[in-house]
Amino acid sequence: MAELLQFVIAGLKSGSIYALVALGFTIVYAATGAINFAQGEFYMLGGMLGVWFVSLGLPVPVAALCAVVSAAAAGALFELAAVRPIAGGDPLRIIIVTIGGSVVLRQLALHLFGPDELTLASFTPGPSIRLFGAAIERQTLWIWALTLVAVVGLVILYRRTAFGKAMRATSLRRDAARLVGIDARAMVTASFALAAGLGALAGLAVTPLTQTAFDVGAGIGVKGFSAAILGGLGNPIAAVGGGLVLGLLESLAAGYLDPIYKDAISLIVLLAVLFLRPQGLLGGSGKEKV
């Protein structure tokens, strides 16, 4: 029983990380109809920038905030400087630009931060917390809390604020949104910034547990994309569900079958969903994209 609980805790931990990355995929998809294959690189940037800001002597909470905000700014800049001028609004071109962009960002990180694995101290030091014979690292609690804050924040943004409603309106009816005065292109920039910020938050929160390096983006990109597809790509809440389910599946497969299967799970899930249920396991009608 304690063993199962331990696997579930581990699954929900990585699942939360996948959920944040998956949210980024759904947000950009809602705004552009395209997959942002550079999403994983912003996860990488979150961790790397966090380490860098801490090395400047900033306290961890300030460094974390700076890292997430800088990564979001980098996301906006990426949209303004590369996606918009090269791809215009064409989803296929956007996909290709983001693939190219991911290579550039990775190489840039290699030159700026070096090839070594880097790490951060836990946000709050101390021993693990015991629960029915299982152990929960304190950093895991941070991951859950930050994921919860991010999801609640997104719901408030989309449901309660004029800016969030303008983002939804643009994704629903681009022309109608423009007719009421919404700058649809600015909404696309905002969606890239938001997605980058969420990815960076994930990369930052997980770094004390897993370390980070310039090349961690591609792997997490596959996980986050699988989670988003599992949720149907259309709905952020379903993407969060997709992330948690994927994390649990991985953890249970690694625990009860063989750790070797862990990384295969996301690809199996991705292929199975695309073949059997392209609208996603948790996806509804998919009428509204955000």
Binding site: R168, L172, K287, E288
Partner: peptide, 16 residues
């Protein structure tokens, strides 16, 4: 119209 949004939200967006 912004179909999945309420009448009021559609109108509020009209004043964006």
């Amino acid at each position: 119209l912004f179909g999945p949004m309420t009448v009021r939200e559609n109108l509020e967006l009209g004043a964006y």
